[in-house]
Design a protein around this nucleic acid. Structure first.
Lengths: 351, 351
DNA sequence: TTGTATGCGTTATCAA
DNA sequence: TTGATAACGCATACAA
């Protein structure tokens, strides 16, 4: 097996405590002679000594590990969050363990179990679904925890997330300002936090400007490209089609764009398109898409900051942060006049 | 603190071993009475007992954890690998710890150190750079290890990777078959494994078909969009510009496409474009890009399979797998005749 | 069917 | 300046 402090002790003739002190302590504290220090360090190197964090963690009741639980690490949003968190935590001397729950609540439950069994010092979680009682339980067990990309008043847990409602409203208000009134919303997975909040923003913006919500213009059922494609095709065939489409996620937008292209409908001349979420490729599409960007770096920094705070003080007040997204205006939206609107819809009807 | 076996023992009156057996053993082995079982399980639940994997790992010399070290988890390729590995390992009852080295060798070194200190049962690593002696050392320490997306004859380590050379050749041969002879290569980061192997395939394909390598057509220096943009702009201005561009990575291709669009050069009518790597968005670009797809799922499955094999047998023969990529032909390449070639280059010169 | 005792590798307390 | 010893929580060989 691997070398232990004991092995080094035997070899050098010193005691285990001495070895431990020169190897892992801020050894100066104990006034250990230069001589023994170098001797110990040398034989440690010779024997290929390697700290055993299991033993240390057990003894110290601290692992310097943070657990991260996300629904889908292949989603660019979460992989970016993951990367930023990693960098941020590294600064503080923490490592982290990632769990991908594959958007499955039962996997999420077992991930939580596993991560707690590992005695992580803290937990960052983007839960699936809208029901957070199992997360409340963790909090109640006094394990430092912060929810990200999700927040709920029904639960007493620290959280930092992006204001999806506001993001949607930014997009919608822009569309409305450009003269659009018939705006479709292609949803992601109904019931998911991201979808429901974005939908809410969509409705709110319409409501605020006195535009009636047309149920026929709210379509779709998941975050994939095919959904965007099919629903766009459907929307274009409507008797009174929308002049703009707002999609709940960028992959949906890809499908929507494709459907337009295949139907010979030009973006933005014939129809405008805006999407939530703004990964690397949106500026390079044809046309470059106007999109709602989420402040990922900020989100990660804040999550870590709040987690540290909670680790220091288990009983402080709950803290919830709502970060503001940003609308990146590019070339997928055209200003519209009533007249143009009519011409446009006539043209579409032939399709 | 949290409840331990001891606590349950005290409360129920049984010994710690009994508690341990009913809670973590395949308890039937020991013929423990139904009565005590239910009693123990009940109080375990009441007290909110949670296994401590540190203690168990220390005792059993096994952690059921696999370390994963990648250069950049925000890169769609690696985040997909990560996701697939997670699923694959979960099947076998293993968890995993991810480290993002941010393409930094010193971070990689410390990540390796950390992960070994955690006494992972195995390690999967996509190292940065081309020099693998530090990885050889891990192997020499008899820690089950498999390199992914990288392989080297200079090192005695299991590995599974994609045949980048072949991938490049697929792309190049297709271009050549379509009549192209002046084909530019926009590199990623020189010295990186991905870049060097892809470059090698580029050169080899030219060599095999008797086309001389023109050094002026090999340009670029990193995997980012700006690099693709700048170098494409430069290539288009050449006195004798290429009729096709092959980019070492998809983000480079985004920049290249953008440069063409801004210069009024049509893809594929005026210039053809092929790229290595094929994430979700390539089919949705204008035009949909012909691209080399890497077999990520297969790569992950094989990596885990080889790792398991190595965990069972420390001293088996070295195994290196080279997976075949696949060329997805879409609409970014045009057949070319000599005449068209000349017209094309004249047109470009005005730019 | 259940209990006792030991050790995994480390740190911390107390003593020398 | 260094050492002996206990404890962290668990699993297991051996006893009963």
């Amino acid at each position: 097996m691997s070398t232990t402090l004991k092995d080094i002790a035997k070899k050098t003739g010193f005691s285990v405590s001495t070895i431990s002190r020169v190897l892992h302590d801020n050894s100066k504290k104990y006034k250990i002679s230069e001589e023994t220090q170098t001797k110990v360090q040398q034989t440690a190197k010779d024997l290929g000594y390697r700290l055993n964090t299991l033993a240390r963690g057990l003894r110290m009741q601290k692992t310097y590990e943070i657990g991260l639980i996300v629904p889908d690490i292949a989603n660019p949003f979460f992989s970016a969050v993951c990367k930023n968190l990693a960098g941020e935590l590294r600064k503080g001397g923490y490592n982290f363990i990632v769990y991908d729950t594959d958007k499955d609540l039962s996997i999420e439950r077992s991930a939580i179990k596993k991560v707690l069994e590992k005695r992580v010092d803290g937990l960052i979680i983007a839960s699936v679904g809208q029901e957070f009682s199992h997360i409340q339980k963790i909090r109640d067990a006094n394990i430092p925890l912060v929810m990200i990309d999700r927040c709920s008043d029904s639960v007493d847990v620290d959280s930092v997330s992006v204001d999806n409602v506001k993001g949607s409203m930014f997009a919608m208000n822009y569309l409305i300002k450009e003269g659009h009134t018939r705006i479709a919303f292609i949803q992601g997975t109904p019931g998911s936090y991201a979808n429901e909040t974005r939908l809410q923003g969509y409705k709110l913006a319409l409501h605020d400007t006195g535009i009636a919500v047309d149920k026929h213009l709210i379509v779709g059922n998941d975050f994939r490209a095919m959904n965007g494609y099919l629903e766009t095709k459907h929307l274009l065939k409507l008797a009174n089609p929308p002049t703009a489409i707002f999609t709940a996620g960028n992959i949906i937008a890809l499908g929507a764009l494709d459907a337009c292209k295949k139907a010979g409908v030009r973006v933005p001349q014939d129809i405008s398109l805006v999407t939530f979420d703004d990964p690397v490729f949106t500026p390079y599409l044809s046309p470059p898409l106007t999109a709602v960007e989420q402040p990922i770096k900020k989100l990660s920094e804040m999550a870590v900051a709040i987690l540290y705070r909670r680790m220091k003080n288990h009983h402080g007040m709950r803290k919830t942060l709502l970060l503001e997204p940003k609308l990146n205006i590019r070339s997928s939206v055209a200003r519209i006049s009533t007249r143009k609107n009519i011409i446009h819809s006539t043209k579409i009807e032939k399709n």
